[in-house]
Write a protein that binds this DNA or RNA. Sequence first.
DNA 1: ACCGTCTCGTATCGGGCGATACAGCCCGGC
DNA 2: GCCGGGCTGTATCGCCCGATACGAGACGGT
Lengths: 220, 220
Amino acid sequence: MTKEKLGTWRIDRQLVEDISRHAAFGRRRKFKKNTVLYEQGEVSTRFYFVLKGLVQISIFRADGSEVVLELMGPETVCGEGAAFDGLPRFSSAAAIEDTEAIEFDTAKMTEIFRARPEFAALLLRVTSLKQRVLAVRLKHLASREPQDRIMELLTRLEDMFAIDHPKGRLLVTHLTHEQIATMTGTSRVTVTRTLQRLREQNRIDIIDGHILLKRRRDGG
Amino acid sequence: MTKEKLGTWRIDRQLVEDISRHAAFGRRRKFKKNTVLYEQGEVSTRFYFVLKGLVQISIFRADGSEVVLELMGPETVCGEGAAFDGLPRFSSAAAIEDTEAIEFDTAKMTEIFRARPEFAALLLRVTSLKQRVLAVRLKHLASREPQDRIMELLTRLEDMFAIDHPKGRLLVTHLTHEQIATMTGTSRVTVTRTLQRLREQNRIDIIDGHILLKRRRDGG
DNA sequence: ACCGTCTCGTATCGGGCGATACAGCCCGGC
DNA sequence: GCCGGGCTGTATCGCCCGATACGAGACGGT
């Protein structure tokens, strides 16, 4: 099984092609591992279309603790939220692998939209998809049950990164219990406990360190 | 003190004017109290700019429980998330007061954007603001502490709806403990307990049923 | 005045999560 | 082989939240 690191986000192929077609409106940039694309609190009109590498999006809470929102792999857009509303960044983005991205600037967007109105519609689709994922995450984080919180992450990863397997769907992405904990707002120990419980309930299985979501009998 | 019901969302005056200026691209509609604007799961390309009344946005979980996302009062936009990405609605919207709104349809948006590119930039600002609020809520819901969850709601309401008061900022919006509970993913009893605790900590006060956020000494 | 409804305050109890600690395991380095 | 670090599996304990129940107070209808 590959040790390649993967993100927690993917958009459909058509959308990727459509965005790539407008790459000329931005400029290509490289970010070395452990450098910052943007930082929570700063004001900026730039956003990014990741081509290679891996970018961790996180929010730091007042007490300094970190909530990891996403790991953005190739062919994903990030930073557009704060770039368009003009307010300080609500999240930070750091390259956790050597990364290449196209950097867009919203400053001249109205002009671009006049020439290429379909680019505006495209960006609206991207922000709407993000809004959707945030809303769905919120739905599950509203629950205090660790099982809800963790299963939401797993099913989302299933939608984006799972491959078929005789017994269900195998998550290609590998996350440590620690990472799952910071993404679901629980403790590392609880993640371990909850995954154990899910195994006992026969809902998941662990194969070579990867999580297998078992086929449910109730359709789907 | 007025008993008028208010929402949990507001956008700045300039943005409201800019949207109003494009009202001709939509059509005016009325919704009686307790009717539905749209429902979770349906596919639709319509979104709304509320003029009068109050619309409750909620997500229903698999077990039937309801998470209230927002109460959208006049001069707010709702439904644009699912209207632009074309996927089934992730939330439901119901008028909880007699409501008037302008209904837009995304189907012909690319054409409109060609003629009025600034309208596209406007909508991107609106969706980005929503993304921001969702992300901030997520940051706080990631915590399991009821106090974090509830204070996030209160400070957000402060930003949008508070009036100055000698001792701090008074929230004009009145929410029952039950409503706060469904918006923060806690129980009604815990909301009561937590608000009590916040009073003991001298961070809030209750004046005629309205919450007063006391001025903090640590600046700000 | 009487009642029903809604809301808020508060009590009891059980359960499960977080904090903490420690052991076993894998793997890479030398 | 030996060591060390990162990850996972468990154990113990304290605490606090959710479920549940009940009472007090406000308000409106008749």
